[in-house]
Design a protein around this nucleic acid. Sequence first.
DNA 1: AGAATGATCCTCT
DNA 2: GAGGATCATTCTC
Length: 194
Amino acid sequence: MDFDILPRSFYAADTVDIAQLLLGKLLIHHSPAGLLSARIVETEAYVAVGDEASHAYRGITPRNSVMFGEPGHAYVYFSYGMHYLLNAVTEAPGVAGAVLIRAAEPVSGVAAMAANRKNAKHTLLCSGPARLTSAFGIDTSLDRVDLVEGGLLTIGDDGFRRTHIVSGPRIGITRSIDFPWRYYIRGNPHVSRP
DNA sequence: AGAATGATCCTCT
DNA sequence: GAGGATCATTCTC
């Protein structure tokens, strides 16, 4: 598997654009169980200004402060008392944007992912933001890690060219529900819901 | 349709 | 500080 790590400049841009550009990229985790990777097929943008669904909407807190910092870091948080969700921090320092990685298509380390996921069927391994982190073994120990420096967790471009992108309302939020900031690859069976 | 399950944050004292 | 609503979900019934 050959890929180029996405550089800092990739993330230092408009969040809605990056949510679309991340489709087709590889999420890579050098986990204790081995190298895990999956192709990102679904994302959501949480934008810097006017987005009431963003954790950063009401300002900086201990949890969300990484969103206000340098782009290209992970934002991992614990939700519903049992799930971890993974974001990539976007925008210039001081501007709080992030892209939620919602679903991916397993590429390598598939057996380890299945073991992490109680042997769920292939298309359900990473087909939701908490399923994906469960399959990858991602938790808050990876919160704030740099995705650019070639550490344990990174995102790469292996030359894959995504096909048609669909957009629609984001899932599971109660505010700012009218913004169509969910993006996914049309027809991909690993998307969390059509 | 409802349970599981706990960190986080807002709103008061 | 304490109380309580909320929660970028998933699984099972």
